[in-house]
Design a protein around this nucleic acid. Structure first.
Lengths: 228, 228
DNA sequence: GTTATACTTCGATGGCTATCAAACTATGCA
DNA sequence: TGCATAGTTTGATAGCCATCGAAGTATAAC
């Protein structure tokens, strides 16, 4: 037999329409209950239950029991990254004829597990690079000294962040824009900051990030983004 | 309908045992013919043909016709990276009880599409970091000035390499060792160098890299790797 | 307690698809 | 002109699995 790990199992779990819908729903980072996921995937509760146990057994999801509810969540950043990579690859396979109407709000700004993606995500990334706060040499992304000061002035506590095993900065190829946005600890911090300040709201059961008009203005100000 | 790209199609293609065997066989980087792949996967030529057209249509493989042969190959580095990521994730899911005998040669040194992986791969990586030729700050890997000189002395032409869109250095989490080895252009160059100098041979239809005793010695010398 | 809600288990059904052999096309070789 | 090899197409078969509803368990609310 082969030494290869069970790549088939993992891919097979993702490669089924209903389960994939559940997984992408969970890419919003929020934990969802079994029934919420059943509604999302438009199936009966019994089939949902079946799928969810498979996903948990396959180590793609973790589950937390709370009273009579069961909350499901992606098992760690690794799984989210895998899904992102799949999204990117399959996006590049799209034939031009396939371009349907495709929800514009989702293209504009959405959550990519725990950071900001979509049009706003890449605009932000470009702005940070343009101001020499971030440096992207093609193969890697890192914070400049200037950038470090900038984010400290915004309240980022680098001592806490650096304790994490996760990279601080990480570029993530955006599947809708085909350009980079920022993931990693700092990407997570920025999204958190946006939400905490009330500049945007997360629509329930969706990955769409809805900026308020004022919030968007402040967002542009904070990161010195030129209005198009 | 969803805006999501056809993530299901991609994952579904990989999530079938026979196709997965073909894909992993192609991770050795070499192009294989349809019959070779049929033998590898232990199926009839007709089913192989069916699978291969699906993989090509799904943009996971490219095919090149040469006489009456058809050579199949992974479609670019992206696909190889996706497979590697799947390997890594599914390796971390392995329960300790699953650890079978698991081919030791494959654990020692193998090809990961176009660079060296396995025990030797991570030893090499650690040695380079230890000598300050490579720097790994946890989130990114890059060449130091000293490292640049070192590789130039070995004959690396950085002008040519930098023309590529691919990152020069890139750490890649090894699924057998659970530690980093070096991918990217430089990783490819090093493997090439090893093969060109005849230090090791690639076993046919396998990802195993077989070092000769002399070759291994020279390999250790060149990269100043201490013998354990 | 009783009722409602959340989830699981079971058995039956239906559809999808991997598989093969056999017939077919195409290319190379003698 | 044939024969052999490489790959494809077709039709039939069989196994797998997603799906549902209904019955069963568990937890919460009253």
């Amino acid at each position: 037999m082969s030494v290869e790990p069970n790549i088939v199992e993992i891919a097979g779990l993702i490669g089924e329409a209903t389960r994939a819908r559940m997984l992408t729903a969970l890419m919003a980072g929020k934990a969802l209950t079994a029934t919420e996921l059943a509604v999302e995937a438009d199936i009966s509760s019994s089939t949902a239950s079946s799928h969810l146990t498979k996903l948990v057994n396959g180590n793609l999801l973790v589950v937390r029991k709370q009273g009579r509810h069961k909350y499901f969540q992606l098992k760690g950043v690794e799984v989210a990254e895998l899904l992102e990579k799949l999204l990117t690859i399959s996006a590049s396979n799209k034939t031009p004829t396939t371009t349907g109407p495709s929800d514009p709000a989702l293209r504009k700004s959405r959550i990519c597990y725990d950071h900001l993606a979509g049009e706003f995500g890449v605009t932000l990334y470009d702005a940070l690079v343009g101001q020499n706060l971030l440096i992207d040499n093609g193969s890697e992304t890192s914070l400049t000294a200037k950038g470090r000061l900038f984010f400290q002035s915004l309240g980022v506590d680098f001592d806490t962040l650096s304790k994490s095993k996760r990279p601080l900065c990480k570029s993530c190829l955006d599947w809708s824009e085909r350009r980079n946005h920022l993931a990693g600890e700092l990407g997570q911090w920025m999204l958190n900051d946006i939400m905490k300040k009330g500049w945007a709201t997360k629509q329930l059961d969706s990955r769409i990030i809805q900026f308020t008009p004022q919030g968007l203005k402040r967002f542009y100000q904070q990161y010195d983004i030129a209005l198009a």
